[in-house]
Design a protein around this nucleic acid. Structure first.
Lengths: 192, 192
DNA sequence: GTGAAATTAGACCGATCGGTCTAATAATTT
DNA sequence: AAATTATTAGACCGATCGGTCTAATTTCAC
């Protein structure tokens, strides 16, 4: 992997493990085996740009999961179950140290970091849109609400999993997918 | 408010807004209007002890919510709705800058901070236990699973609310409470 | 092979980090 | 009033923070 990508990957990993503020540039550089010059060569915007790129790379990670897990499942229920499995695998591989970077950064971002907050929204938008499109393709009604509902429960489960160091909440989520898909999530006051 | 409590409150607020690592002692002291000596007088354990206390204070905040919102509602559904309202009020009061400190700190904590991770678990334990006891009092079955389920959805909704700066996910959660209470959350393989 | 561009290397910067320490002051006890 | 304790005050510490800058080196084009 080239230096630029290595920096992004290391940054992404550290952010998922301990957040944005606790991740120092020197630690990133040490793990990537690069000097400071390389960082500012590839990312003139410094730490913030690097973090934004790390968030963007999470989009690719999500896209990979969509591709591999949805292709192998014919039903919407199977597809969503696959996505949860994708997160379970990731969680176990990291020994429950890696959460969702979107959530982690979202909870750390504030009005002082508008660029970060926007990047967070963008990735979440992508996630919701991808899931919605998938659900629509599978013939679901109220797709966007269902997608949001699924992600909300997934994010909540990921936090619980992190706190108690167990994948149980995600395993439980898999059992609830059928309900999520069946529930009527269309807003009471029509939105579209 | 005395100096000690002021330090805890300021710390709790900053943590909820931007997390643990990004919250500096100097900022805490400036907002509390106290010198460094006071901090280490009351909290010899330094920043970590202060954060643990801030997390503990969140237990009190939760307990207040339980008291005020559950007393005023006779049904379990009404009680949980009240809790969600409690979070909505808090979120709006902070202009969507204050998340759940448990989640925020949980996503920032790792093996290097065992004391923090334990404090996070302790507050979450308290939360789950309180809700379980309430549900049992209201005659619910599968109380603990239902409590966990509710909290997971609340945490997920809080993240979404933070990202999009809207209380909509929490408003939606209120509409789902009836379903959460009705669903069978007892584990497939009995746990107790 | 030579010149230009891309990349690596790391010294250096001021600011801030969490933490320690001593002294002054305020409050309380006797 | 004197002695004791609790609290405030802030100078100071080494370490690290994110960031800048100049060279050295490597890569690549011609």
């Amino acid at each position: 992997m080239n230096s630029r990508d290595r920096l992004i990957q290391v940054t992404a990993r550290l952010i998922r493990e301990k957040g944005m503020a606790a991740t120092g540039l020197s630690e990133i550089l040490a793990l990537a085996g690069l000097p400071k010059g390389s960082l500012y060569h590839y990312f003139p915007g410094g730490k913030e740009e690097l973090i934004r790129e790390a968030l963007q790379s999470y989009k690719n990670w999500l896209a990979e999961g969509f591709k591999s897990k949805m292709k192998g499942n014919s039903t919407a229920e199977g597809g969503l179950t696959g996505i949860v499995d994708y997160f379970i695998e990731d969680l176990k591989a990291s020994q429950f140290t890696a959460g969702c970077p979107i959530a982690t950064v979202a909870l750390e971002s504030n009005a002082d970091l508008p660029g970060i907050a926007m990047a967070v929204r963008e990735v979440m938008d992508y996630w919701i849109a991808s899931l919605s499109a998938y659900l629509q393709y599978k013939g679901m009604a109220g797709k966007r609400c269902t997608a949001e509902e699924f992600i909300i429960q997934l994010e909540g489960a990921l936090i619980m999993a992190r706190i108690y160091q167990t994948s149980a909440p995600l395993e439980k989520l898999k059992l609830k997918i059928k309900n999520i898909l069946q529930d009527d999530h269309t807003p009471q006051i029509a939105k579209l």
